[in-house]
Every structure is written in structure tokens, then in C-alpha cells.
Design a protein around this nucleic acid. Structure first.
Length: 107
DNA sequence: GACATGACGGCAC
DNA sequence: AGTGCCGCCATGT
């Protein structure tokens, strides 16, 4: 238990703000928690997160690729969940960020 | 305490 | 435009 635990909570809270049908990226989340260049920490925090309460499937890399799919029940679980929420994919299997990238408000 | 690793990203070649 | 290297920070060994 350390004071840096707020880091995880911030990440989880931000991810929960992403609405169905939208996605965000590790880099953007990292920037939101004041750690611009530590995008790795975000994915790492998500790996330790409770998938039942944190929509981790809505976080992709900067190219829209589902780099975290290997951490779900099956390799295609992540994509199926996104498709169910209305997210569309490009022929190469990456998310069309132009259409589905969620922008956090300053709130 | 040093070293390697990881659901990444940016910039240099 | 594709590939590679380095930075970043928490953890495990």
C-alpha cells in the first residue's frame, strides 16, 4: 500500500468515463493522470484491474490496435465486446479512431 | 539494490 | 512508410 495507489484509482475512474461505443488510448489516459510518458503504467494498471467494474476493453493503443486482447478470457473477447457496443473496425482489425476515439472533457 | 519486463509512445534512421 | 531505440515508472526476481 503506497500513496501512489491514487494512480490506479485515477486510471480506473477515467476508464469508467469512456462510454460504450467509444475507446481511448493508453497515452491519453496516462496524460490525464499527469504521466504523459508512462503509458506503460496504464496498461499495467488495467491488467491488475477488475474487469467486472472497469471497461478495460475500451482502451487501445495509439494505432487503434487491440494490444491487450491477450489478457481477456479469449483472444477475441475484447473485439467482440467492442463490436457489441457498436465499435467498428478497419479491414486490418484496428479500431477506427476517427469515429470512436473518446475525448475527455476538462470537467 | 541492480536488472529485466511490460495491455505504450515519440522520434530518429 | 516501416523499423528500431530509448524513455517512462511500478513490480518481481
Amino acid at each position: 500500500m503506497t500513496a501512489s495507489m491514487t494512480f490506479y484509482e485515477k486510471v480506473y475512474e477515467l476508464v469508467r468515463r469512456i462510454p460504450p461505443g467509444k475507446v481511448s488510448t493508453y497515452g491519453i489516459i496516462a496524460e490525464q493522470v499527469s504521466m504523459r510518458s508512462a503509458a506503460r503504467m496504464v496498461g499495467w494498471a488495467l491488467n491488475k484491474a477488475d474487469l467486472a467494474t472497469v471497461p478495460a476493453h475500451r482502451v487501445v493503443n495509439r494505432n487503434g490496435e487491440l494490444t491487450g486482447k491477450g489478457h481477456f478470457f479469449t483472444p477475441d473477447t475484447m473485439r467482440r465486446m467492442l463490436e457489441t457496443e457498436g465499435v467498428t473496425f478497419r479491414p486490418d482489425g484496428s479500431v477506427n479512431l476517427e469515429r470512436h476515439l473518446f475525448r475527455f472533457n476538462g470537467s
